[in-house]
Amino acid sequence: MADLQDDPHADPSLPVGPGSVGIEDVSAPAAVPGALERAAELLAVHPVADGCNSLVWTLSQSPYHDIDTPDTGIDTDIPRLRAGGVGAQFWSLLVPPGRTREGGAADQVVSDTLELIDVALALVRRYPDGLRLGLTADDMMDARNKGRIASYLGPVSGATLTGSLGALRAFHALGVRILAPAGAPWAREGLTAFGHEVVKEVNRLAMLLDLTGCPPVAACQLAAASKAPVIVSNTGAAALTAHPDNVTDEVLLALRTAGGLAMVTFDTARTGDSLHAVADHLDHLRAVAGPECVGLGAAFGTEGATPRPTGLTDPSGYPRLLAELLERGWPESDLALLTWGNAQRVLRDAEFTARAAQHRRTP
């Protein structure tokens, strides 16, 4: 790993060495010092691209939080993101179930989503030394090289599209790059004719489809219909934990065929109550989908006492997770894909697909 420390593109703001792993979690399991040092060195070059964080919703409800300093009320702030080696973050713009006002009417879902987009953009503007808006795959590397955390907006709910693609294009113009079909009428029981048009337009705009929460039949159909890779931004292995939002092996194989990405969450209900249990889910996804189709989507950003696995209670725990995977025999090349490479690939592949689609399809 000596070459990692000499990498000219390494972000000096990210942790390097065992003494800079981050904010201490006294409940965290101990890692072998050599593995922890190697994990920190790897994160300095291949930081984590985290597929899911709900901080935007939390800030929309509690705008007084200052994420430049650690806050015991929430689990995400810039110091802990840096301590964990996070170099890119996908900020979820989904309204939690049951929280949409006025009974969840379609126009209210759109209004709530627009408010979250406004909060997300204000967040990036407020912390220019820590965050940088991500619109393209190149922005991910550019932000890292400049010591910033690339911030991608999305997903937004597919329920915001009510028979017209205009809302989708408007979201894209505002900076949104991910759409979640789960629960949308056009993808609930499989793709409708309008659903197929949504997928084509998502591809044309170089956006990503996030299949989190989709039933297996719909997820497999969406993965097959999309010309670009799809993601599951926060999930676990249903074969290990029978949770409705965890991916089945059937879906994992569909992702493998489509070059998609399943990103493992840190949620005790879905991936167990310990760092070791989360590592078990990563092992399973890697075995079934392949190392090119596994990522990390912790789903941090909540306010209050959300149950988290021991050792992974906030983003600063990422080096310990990588140390555990090193001890399990994961090669560093696979870890580089897990943290950074796979997320960057799906963004680049989506852009490649969009360039091809724009020659064939107009809005």
Rank of each mutant, 00 (worst) to 15 (best):
residue 55 L to M: 09
residue 186 W to C: 05
residue 283 D to H: 06
residue 208 L to S: 07
residue 125 R to A: 15
residue 273 D to P: 08
residue 54 S to T: 13
residue 24 E to N: 07
residue 44 A to S: 15
residue 252 L to G: 06
residue 2 A to Q: 13
residue 57 W to F: 09
residue 145 N to S: 15
residue 43 L to A: 08
residue 221 Q to V: 11
residue 125 R to P: 14
residue 350 A to T: 12
residue 283 D to C: 09
residue 147 G to N: 01
residue 254 A to G: 04
residue 230 V to M: 07
residue 135 L to V: 12
residue 310 T to K: 04
residue 185 P to L: 03
residue 157 S to L: 03
residue 86 V to T: 12
residue 244 P to Y: 02
residue 15 P to N: 01
residue 196 H to S: 10
residue 269 A to M: 06
residue 195 G to N: 01
residue 303 E to N: 12
residue 359 H to Q: 13
residue 79 P to Q: 13
residue 304 G to D: 10
residue 24 E to Y: 15
residue 345 R to N: 09
residue 237 A to Y: 08
residue 53 N to P: 00
residue 181 P to A: 12
residue 358 Q to S: 13
residue 352 F to M: 15
residue 20 S to L: 05
residue 316 S to D: 00
residue 185 P to Y: 00
residue 255 L to E: 05
residue 348 R to F: 04
residue 100 T to I: 11
residue 286 R to S: 12
residue 70 P to L: 15
residue 329 G to R: 03
residue 28 A to P: 01
residue 278 V to N: 10
residue 81 L to D: 01
residue 352 F to Y: 14
residue 362 T to K: 12
residue 10 A to L: 12
residue 272 G to P: 02
residue 258 A to C: 06
residue 293 C to G: 08
residue 112 D to F: 00
residue 301 G to F: 12
residue 269 A to C: 04
residue 109 V to S: 02
residue 188 R to C: 02
